[in-house]
């Protein structure tokens, strides 16, 4: 199975892992989940749409990253998955 990882567990960052899957699954563990869960999920969904990806498993371990950080980490993880042999 192809996978890709990007990011860190440092404060203000997120560690995002993606795995090939035949369905869409998004798991979010965030220190600001109570405040920003929906926003984090929205950014992940929007980014996947822009990347034309429908089925994938995304695991986001978030340490308070801003939207652009989550987007960048996800795009990088996807690129790494593509080149994963």
């Amino acid at each position: 199975m192809k996978t890709g990882v990007a990011g860190t567990k440092e404060s203000n960052d997120a560690l995002i892992s993606v795995f090939e899957s035949d369905m869409l699954e998004i798991e979010i563990q965030s220190i600001v989940d109570l405040m920003y869960h929906d926003q984090i999920e929205k950014v992940i969904r929007e980014t996947l749409k822009e990347e034309h990806i429908q089925n994938i498993r995304v695991v986001c371990v978030d340490k308070g990253a801003l939207d652009y950080t989550i987007r960048a980490r996800l795009i990088t993880a996807l690129k790494r998955m593509k080149s994963d042999d």
């Binding site: 404060s11 203000n12 220190i31 600001v32 405040m35 920003y36 340490k63 308070g64 990253a65 801003l66």
Partner: peptide, 13 residues
């Protein structure tokens, strides 16, 4: 004079 110094957010909060 009382000055508070802080970043606008701390771990997004």
């Amino acid at each position: 004079i009382t000055i508070i110094t802080s970043t606008l957010t701390k771990a997004r909060i």
